[in-house]
Design a protein around this nucleic acid. Structure first.
Ligand SMILES: [Mn+2]
Ligand SMILES: [Mn+2]
Ligand SMILES: [Zn+2]
Ligand SMILES: [Zn+2]
Lengths: 137, 137
DNA sequence: TTCTAGTTTATAATAATTCTAAAAAAAGTA
DNA sequence: TACTTTTTTTAGAATTATTATAAACTAGAA
């Protein structure tokens, strides 16, 4: 279903040239329908394992940021030393386990509608995200 | 109101020795009742300006983290290159302007009650925070 | 005052991220 | 296709935030 042809289309549609490296990264990110969260370092390790050729770290950074800009990836707001990205680009929220550093999706439906009764002059809301930190019971 | 004697008490109460440096940092953080958000670098600049003596960056890091652990400061979850801290330790939420990098408080009362209808096995919720990203209208 | 554990400091180390400039690849053109 | 132009990749350097180290210093107790 998500094969090379689709990746090329996906890239073309968003004005990105379908280079060999970008297609490889697409394979890792989008091949299976299950979405996941990752840091750049984790992604780089997965790529190193799954793909025969190596892709430079700079390219991984560049590509991930390009995908983010195009809306193919989301960046998750957590205050840690590294950035977390998400292949689930739908609007949703997160659990974060500070112990295991694990992120878990919290779907939009699992949260009652959020109503913000304040606004900032001259500004409009671009996103509203909940981060639920969890700890061991 | 918030004078040296109080800082010493505050520090003592939380098992921290009232050293010269920590009291100076307290002055910057807690002297005026108005709370604010800061990065370590901003804090370090404020200290350099307001206080005659210089305090090493390591001490600032250590002290801020000690205060955080003791609950005198909160760390805000935003994915940027630096950590944001908050002298407002009450439960509240934030607006974040990605352009100006400015954080603004969103009080608990400004947000309708958040109801999470999902839980993770063996985990309990330790905090629920909303980050509202804003952009120019 | 003396002793000791806790603290500060300068500095080095680490680690995430970005920058750079040259080489390689892709696209465009004829 | 063959040539030109544009974009991308790459290795490595640079930058920046943060943490670790280890020696000098200090607060507080005895
Ligand atoms: Mn931290
Ligand atoms: Mn980033
Ligand atoms: Zn997610
Ligand atoms: Zn705040």
């Amino acid at each position: 279903m998500n094969s090379k042809g689709n990746f090329v289309k996906k890239l073309r549609n968003s004005g990105l040239r379908p280079t060999k490296q970008r297609i490889k990264i697409c394979e890792v990110l989008f091949k299976n329908e299950k979405t996941f969260h990752f840091t750049i370092n984790e992604l780089s390790k997965i790529i190193a394992e799954k793909i025969e050729e190596k892709i430079s770290l700079a390219t991984i950074y560049n590509t991930v940021h390009a995908f983010k800009k195009k809306g193919y990836l989301k960046e998750i707001s957590i205050n840690t030393d590294k950035s977390y990205f998400d292949t689930n680009t739908s609007h949703h929220h997160h659990f974060f386990d500070n112990l295991t550093k694990e992120l878990t999706d919290l779907s939009n439906e699992d949260v009652e509608k959020i109503q913000i009764n304040k606004s900032l002059p001259g500004k409009k809301i671009s996103s509203v995200e909940i981060l639920v930190k969890v700890e061991n019971e």
